[in-house]
Write a protein that binds this DNA or RNA. Structure first.
Lengths: 210, 210
DNA sequence: AAACTCTGTTTCCTATAGTGAACCCATTCA
DNA sequence: TGAATGGGTTCACTATAGGAAACAGAGTTT
């Protein structure tokens, strides 16, 4: 299946979704934001370049702003469009979950080349997966194939020195404190350079599946 | 400027999210969706109640649609507004982006209580925001208010010893190598316990904006 | 209390968004 | 081949959004 077709399929599916869009009290919302910041209509006028009168009419739902006007609003107020549309956000989330992992207390997953220690594994449903890795491998040959997984990865060297092989770049030498961010569906592999095993901290995003 | 605002600003910069919405080829986007679904202008006209001519002009950026028109669009096409604005991830993955940051070479953002060093800030549009922080604060009193931002945060102590205050839990003492994962819209604040400033590595998810 | 100042609203006027009809250009059909 | 259909664009007109200025109301100052 071609990329184009894939994308078209995605679009079709996407547009098939039926979101009930209610009133969208945009004027009301704007007023909320304005008052929350203690801005006067004049202030907002200065920031956005829209006339005081126009703003008043928008707030009172007397006119339906043009899209360019909306852009001036989000630019001038420094807010995101979703922010302007999203009603006050009733539940500010604040779940306040927390998951502590003491040094060395993570969940260990040994492999021939790496020894992973999963951190914060009490917590389900998280948007990042942190783990510490002891790099055992000393040569690229020890990997039968590229390590590869959906998403993005951040990596920092905690101890020792490593060489990072990646599919599309020259190998890179990383010392303690160096860090790198990359798309982890690009093949990658780490080897330790010093006598002792190197230790790196990685944080991955979970696979997309979206 | 409060600590909260500081960090939020830093996060905005770091996430590579364009602070302001520029061209916003809305017309182009609409056409994409229409063609992907193999709809004619007439079809879309039926669905949305907008005139065929109007749709044509919108697609060719000859007019800036009124907000009510945009609503008719998203209702009629059954799509979300963000969908209409966000070009669909055109990358079929495997972009193979990469961003190296050598020890101490990040982008510094000092505040009274913390000194942030943003890592991997070359890369825009990423799903994690890594930064190293030197914790200057020695007492909880130095914070005017909770640090708080949408999303989740992972944190590991690299050097020194810190106490983590959180809104819903008792303060927690963290030593080198300890790590914690938490919902960062729960208020939080770090203070250094030793004589020297402590150093921690943090990775945040970008704010929701959904 | 009058004059001033700062707010938000309302009044006009013009610029432009939205509409139906006419138009153009392909493709299909007789 | 010419007629007919169905796609998108352009035109001429009407409806409406945006702006400048006038207005109105609530404090302040004199």
């Amino acid at each position: 299946m071609s990329a184009t077709t894939d994308q078209q399929a995605a679009l079709r599916i996407a547009s098939g979704r039926k979101p009930f869009v209610e009133p969208l009290r945009l004027g009301e919302r704007l007023k909320e934001i304005r008052l929350a910041n203690q801005w006067t209509l004049e202030d907002v006028s200065q920031r956005t370049g829209l006339a005081r009168s126009t703003l008043s009419k928008i707030e009172n739902d007397q006119i339906s702003p043009t899209f360019t006007a909306v852009q001036k609003l989000i630019n001038g107020l420094g807010i995101d469009l979703p922010q302007l549309l999203t009603p006050p956000r009733v539940q500010p989330r604040t779940m306040g979950r927390r998951d502590l992992t003491r040094q060395g207390e993570g969940q260990r997953h040994p492999t021939p080349t790496y020894e992973h220690e999963l951190l914060s594994c009490e917590l389900a449903q998280k948007r990042m997966i942190p783990f510490k890795t002891i790099v055992r491998a000393r040569s690229f040959d020890e990997f039968s194939e590229w390590v590869r997984h959906d998403g993005e990865e951040f990596l920092m060297v905690l101890e020792g020195e490593v060489r990072l092989y990646t599919e599309f770049y020259e190998p890179l030498q990383l010392s303690r404190g160096d860090s790198i961010y990359f798309d982890s569906d690009m093949g990658h592999a780490l080897v330790s350079l010093g006598d002792d095993d190197a230790v790196v901290l990685s944080v991955c995003t979970p696979g997309d599946s979206a």
